[in-house]
Protein backbone atom coordinates (compact mmCIF):
# COMPACT_ATOMS: atom_id res chain seq x y z
CA UNK A 1 0.00 0.00 0.00
CA UNK A 2 1.48 3.34 -0.91
CA UNK A 3 1.69 6.55 1.06
CA UNK A 4 -1.23 8.24 -0.69
CA UNK A 5 -3.59 5.38 0.07
CA UNK A 6 -2.49 5.47 3.70
CA UNK A 7 -3.13 9.20 4.01
CA UNK A 8 -6.47 8.78 2.28
CA UNK A 9 -7.41 6.03 4.70
CA UNK A 10 -6.29 8.27 7.55
CA UNK A 11 -8.53 11.09 6.31
CA UNK A 12 -11.54 8.79 6.13
CA UNK A 13 -10.87 7.28 9.57
CA UNK A 14 -10.38 10.77 11.01
CA UNK A 15 -13.68 11.87 9.50
CA UNK A 16 -15.62 9.03 11.08
CA UNK A 17 -13.69 9.44 14.33
CA UNK A 18 -14.67 13.09 14.48
CA UNK A 19 -18.32 12.20 13.82
CA UNK A 20 -18.13 9.61 16.57
CA UNK A 21 -16.74 12.13 19.06
CA UNK A 22 -19.26 14.81 18.10
CA UNK A 23 -22.13 12.36 18.52
CA UNK A 24 -20.80 10.89 21.78
CA UNK A 25 -20.24 14.30 23.37
CA UNK A 26 -23.71 15.43 22.40
CA UNK A 27 -22.59 18.21 20.05
CA UNK A 28 -24.69 16.37 17.47
CA UNK A 29 -27.92 15.34 19.18
CA UNK A 30 -28.94 11.67 19.02
CA UNK A 31 -32.18 12.77 17.35
CA UNK A 32 -30.15 14.08 14.45
CA UNK A 33 -27.51 11.41 14.06
CA UNK A 34 -26.31 8.33 15.87
CA UNK A 35 -22.58 7.59 16.30
CA UNK A 36 -21.01 5.67 13.37
CA UNK A 37 -20.09 2.79 15.68
CA UNK A 38 -23.75 2.31 16.54
CA UNK A 39 -24.64 2.48 12.86
CA UNK A 40 -22.24 -0.38 12.24
CA UNK A 41 -23.61 -2.44 15.12
CA UNK A 42 -27.16 -1.85 14.00
CA UNK A 43 -26.24 -2.69 10.44
CA UNK A 44 -24.74 -5.98 11.57
CA UNK A 45 -28.00 -6.81 13.35
CA UNK A 46 -29.97 -5.97 10.19
CA UNK A 47 -27.71 -8.12 8.07
CA UNK A 48 -28.02 -11.05 10.47
CA UNK A 49 -31.80 -10.75 10.61
CA UNK A 50 -31.95 -10.91 6.82
CA UNK A 51 -33.70 -7.57 6.48
CA UNK A 52 -30.89 -6.04 4.44
CA UNK A 53 -30.76 -9.00 2.11
CA UNK A 54 -34.44 -8.63 1.22
CA UNK A 55 -34.16 -4.97 0.33
CA UNK A 56 -30.85 -5.49 -1.38
CA UNK A 57 -32.16 -8.24 -3.64
CA UNK A 58 -34.85 -5.97 -5.01
CA UNK A 59 -32.58 -2.93 -5.35
CA UNK A 60 -29.68 -4.78 -6.94
CA UNK A 61 -32.05 -6.62 -9.28
CA UNK A 62 -33.51 -3.36 -10.54
CA UNK A 63 -30.11 -1.72 -10.80
CA UNK A 64 -28.75 -4.68 -12.76
CA UNK A 65 -31.62 -4.63 -15.27
CA UNK A 66 -31.49 -0.84 -15.64
CA UNK A 67 -27.77 -0.74 -16.13
CA UNK A 68 -27.53 -3.67 -18.55
CA UNK A 69 -30.30 -2.10 -20.61
CA UNK A 70 -28.58 1.28 -20.49
CA UNK A 71 -25.22 -0.16 -21.55
CA UNK A 72 -26.54 -2.20 -24.50
CA UNK A 73 -29.05 0.36 -25.73
CA UNK A 74 -26.59 3.20 -25.12
CA UNK A 75 -23.87 1.45 -27.11
CA UNK A 76 -26.20 0.52 -29.97
CA UNK A 77 -27.64 4.03 -30.22
CA UNK A 78 -24.19 5.61 -29.85
CA UNK A 79 -22.74 3.44 -32.62
CA UNK A 80 -25.75 4.09 -34.85
CA UNK A 81 -25.65 7.85 -34.37
CA UNK A 82 -21.90 7.87 -34.88
CA UNK A 83 -22.40 6.46 -38.35
CA UNK A 84 -24.73 9.36 -39.24
CA UNK A 85 -22.68 12.56 -38.75
CA UNK A 86 -25.54 14.88 -39.65
CA UNK A 87 -27.94 13.36 -37.11
CA UNK A 88 -25.16 13.35 -34.59
CA UNK A 89 -24.52 17.07 -34.96
CA UNK A 90 -28.21 17.79 -34.57
CA UNK A 91 -28.45 15.60 -31.47
CA UNK A 92 -25.36 16.99 -29.77
CA UNK A 93 -27.02 19.95 -28.00
CA UNK A 94 -29.73 17.64 -26.66
CA UNK A 95 -27.20 15.15 -25.36
CA UNK A 96 -25.13 17.80 -23.59
CA UNK A 97 -28.15 19.44 -21.92
CA UNK A 98 -29.87 16.15 -21.15
CA UNK A 99 -28.68 15.98 -17.57
CA UNK A 100 -29.97 19.48 -16.87
CA UNK A 101 -33.49 18.04 -16.94
CA UNK A 102 -34.23 16.83 -13.41
CA UNK A 103 -35.36 13.39 -14.50
CA UNK A 104 -36.97 12.37 -11.31
CA UNK A 105 -39.95 14.59 -12.01
CA UNK A 106 -40.92 11.98 -14.59
CA UNK A 107 -40.95 9.30 -11.96
CA UNK A 108 -44.38 10.07 -10.47
CA UNK A 109 -45.73 10.09 -14.01
CA UNK A 110 -44.21 6.68 -14.71
CA UNK A 111 -45.68 5.28 -11.49
CA UNK A 112 -48.98 6.73 -12.50
CA UNK A 113 -48.88 5.07 -15.91
CA UNK A 114 -47.35 1.71 -15.04
CA UNK A 115 -48.44 1.28 -11.45
CA UNK A 116 -46.37 0.80 -8.34
CA UNK A 117 -43.96 -1.93 -9.43
CA UNK A 118 -40.38 -2.40 -10.49
CA UNK A 119 -40.87 -1.12 -14.01
CA UNK A 120 -40.96 2.64 -13.31
CA UNK A 121 -37.85 2.35 -11.15
CA UNK A 122 -35.99 0.47 -13.84
CA UNK A 123 -37.12 3.08 -16.35
CA UNK A 124 -35.77 5.93 -14.22
CA UNK A 125 -32.46 4.14 -13.66
CA UNK A 126 -32.27 3.43 -17.39
CA UNK A 127 -33.18 6.98 -18.48
CA UNK A 128 -30.63 8.37 -16.09
CA UNK A 129 -27.84 6.04 -17.22
CA UNK A 130 -28.39 5.59 -20.94
CA UNK A 131 -27.29 9.01 -22.12
CA UNK A 132 -23.97 8.77 -20.26
CA UNK A 133 -23.37 5.56 -22.21
CA UNK A 134 -24.38 7.17 -25.53
CA UNK A 135 -22.09 10.15 -24.97
CA UNK A 136 -19.14 7.98 -24.02
CA UNK A 137 -19.72 5.62 -26.93
CA UNK A 138 -19.62 8.59 -29.30
CA UNK A 139 -16.45 9.87 -27.64
CA UNK A 140 -14.86 6.44 -27.77
CA UNK A 141 -15.63 5.97 -31.46
CA UNK A 142 -14.40 9.50 -32.21
CA UNK A 143 -11.00 8.65 -30.82
CA UNK A 144 -10.36 5.79 -33.26
CA UNK A 145 -7.71 7.05 -35.69
CA UNK A 146 -8.69 6.96 -39.35
CA UNK A 147 -5.84 4.62 -40.18
CA UNK A 148 -7.57 1.70 -38.38
CA UNK A 149 -10.46 1.86 -40.81
CA UNK A 150 -7.94 1.74 -43.65
CA UNK A 151 -6.39 -1.36 -42.11
CA UNK A 152 -9.84 -2.92 -41.89
CA UNK A 153 -10.43 -2.26 -45.58
CA UNK A 154 -7.03 -3.69 -46.51
CA UNK A 155 -8.23 -6.87 -44.79
CA UNK A 156 -11.46 -6.81 -46.81
CA UNK A 157 -13.58 -6.41 -43.69
CA UNK A 158 -17.17 -5.21 -44.01
CA UNK A 159 -18.94 -2.66 -41.85
CA UNK A 160 -20.09 -5.13 -39.17
CA UNK A 161 -16.76 -6.98 -38.97
CA UNK A 162 -14.90 -3.67 -38.68
CA UNK A 163 -17.17 -2.55 -35.87
CA UNK A 164 -16.82 -5.83 -33.99
CA UNK A 165 -13.15 -6.69 -34.52
CA UNK A 166 -11.52 -3.26 -34.72
CA UNK A 167 -13.67 -0.38 -33.51
CA UNK A 168 -15.11 -2.10 -30.46
CA UNK A 169 -11.83 -3.42 -29.04
CA UNK A 170 -10.09 -0.12 -29.75
CA UNK A 171 -12.82 1.84 -28.02
CA UNK A 172 -13.28 -0.45 -25.01
CA UNK A 173 -11.17 1.56 -22.55
CA UNK A 174 -13.23 4.63 -23.43
CA UNK A 175 -16.49 2.72 -23.43
CA UNK A 176 -15.59 1.58 -19.96
CA UNK A 177 -15.91 5.15 -18.71
CA UNK A 178 -19.49 4.99 -19.96
CA UNK A 179 -20.05 1.63 -18.26
CA UNK A 180 -18.75 3.01 -14.97
CA UNK A 181 -21.07 6.00 -15.18
CA UNK A 182 -23.98 3.81 -16.27
CA UNK A 183 -23.54 1.66 -13.16
CA UNK A 184 -23.28 4.66 -10.83
CA UNK A 185 -26.21 6.45 -12.47
CA UNK A 186 -28.51 3.41 -12.42
CA UNK A 187 -27.79 3.13 -8.72
CA UNK A 188 -28.61 6.79 -8.18
CA UNK A 189 -31.74 6.52 -10.30
CA UNK A 190 -33.13 3.34 -8.76
CA UNK A 191 -32.42 4.30 -5.17
CA UNK A 192 -33.81 7.80 -5.60
CA UNK A 193 -36.95 6.32 -7.15
CA UNK A 194 -37.33 3.86 -4.29
CA UNK A 195 -36.90 6.74 -1.95
CA UNK A 196 -39.61 8.89 -3.45
CA UNK A 197 -42.28 6.25 -3.98
CA UNK A 198 -41.85 2.48 -4.08
CA UNK A 199 -43.13 -0.87 -2.88
CA UNK A 200 -39.76 -1.97 -1.47
CA UNK A 201 -35.98 -1.90 -1.74
CA UNK A 202 -33.21 -0.21 0.21
CA UNK A 203 -34.21 3.36 -0.65
CA UNK A 204 -37.76 2.62 0.40
CA UNK A 205 -36.56 1.07 3.66
CA UNK A 206 -34.66 4.26 4.49
CA UNK A 207 -37.57 6.57 3.78
CA UNK A 208 -39.86 4.20 5.73
CA UNK A 209 -37.51 4.34 8.71
CA UNK A 210 -37.39 8.12 8.40
CA UNK A 211 -41.18 8.39 8.45
CA UNK A 212 -41.28 6.20 11.59
CA UNK A 213 -38.51 8.06 13.45
CA UNK A 214 -36.42 4.87 13.42
CA UNK A 215 -33.01 6.55 13.29
CA UNK A 216 -31.05 3.38 14.04
CA UNK A 217 -32.34 1.48 11.03
CA UNK A 218 -32.17 4.55 8.85
CA UNK A 219 -28.53 5.31 9.53
CA UNK A 220 -27.52 1.67 9.39
CA UNK A 221 -29.05 1.38 5.92
CA UNK A 222 -27.50 4.66 4.77
CA UNK A 223 -24.10 3.37 5.83
CA UNK A 224 -24.78 0.13 4.01
CA UNK A 225 -25.65 1.83 0.73
CA UNK A 226 -22.65 4.14 0.92
CA UNK A 227 -20.31 1.22 1.56
CA UNK A 228 -21.92 -1.01 -1.07
CA UNK A 229 -21.83 1.59 -3.83
CA UNK A 230 -18.29 2.64 -2.93
CA UNK A 231 -17.09 -0.96 -3.14
CA UNK A 232 -18.75 -1.48 -6.52
CA UNK A 233 -17.35 1.76 -7.93
CA UNK A 234 -13.87 1.05 -6.58
CA UNK A 235 -13.81 -2.42 -8.13
CA UNK A 236 -14.84 -1.02 -11.50
CA UNK A 237 -12.18 1.65 -11.16
CA UNK A 238 -9.52 -0.93 -10.30
CA UNK A 239 -10.53 -3.07 -13.27
CA UNK A 240 -10.39 -0.05 -15.56
CA UNK A 241 -6.91 0.83 -14.35
CA UNK A 242 -5.74 -2.69 -15.19
CA UNK A 243 -7.26 -2.46 -18.63
CA UNK A 244 -5.63 0.91 -19.23
CA UNK A 245 -2.24 -0.16 -17.95
CA UNK A 246 -2.09 -3.19 -20.20
CA UNK A 247 -2.90 -1.16 -23.27
CA UNK A 248 -0.76 1.70 -22.05
CA UNK A 249 -3.29 4.43 -22.69
Amino acid sequence: MNRLTLIRLGVIVAFFGLLEILCRTGVISPFTMIPPSEMAIELWALIVSGEVARGMRQTLGNVAVACILAITVGFAVGAGVHALPRLRRALDPFLTTYYAVPFFVFYPLLVFIFGMNNFPMIMIGFLFAVVAMIINTLNGLDKIPRVYRKVARMHHMGRAKTALLIELPYAIPNLFTGVKLAVAYSFIGVIAAEFILAPGGLGYAISFAYDNFDNETMYALMLFILVLVTIINMSLHAYEQRLLRRQGR
Binding site: P145, V147, K150, V151, R153, M154, P169, Y170, Q247
Partner: peptide, 17 residues
Protein backbone atom coordinates in the same frame (compact mmCIF):
# COMPACT_ATOMS: atom_id res chain seq x y z
CA UNK B 1 -9.16 -2.94 -52.37
CA UNK B 2 -7.97 -5.78 -54.64
CA UNK B 3 -6.48 -9.06 -53.43
CA UNK B 4 -2.71 -9.30 -53.28
CA UNK B 5 -1.89 -5.80 -52.06
CA UNK B 6 -0.47 -5.20 -48.60
CA UNK B 7 -0.04 -1.76 -47.05
CA UNK B 8 1.87 -0.36 -44.10
CA UNK B 9 0.65 3.11 -43.22
CA UNK B 10 2.48 6.18 -42.06
CA UNK B 11 0.60 6.33 -38.75
CA UNK B 12 0.93 3.67 -36.07
CA UNK B 13 -1.83 1.17 -36.77
CA UNK B 14 -0.84 -1.66 -34.43
CA UNK B 15 -3.78 -3.03 -32.46
CA UNK B 16 -3.19 -2.02 -28.81
CA UNK B 17 -5.48 -4.75 -27.49
Amino acid sequence: VPDGIGAVFQEDASFPW
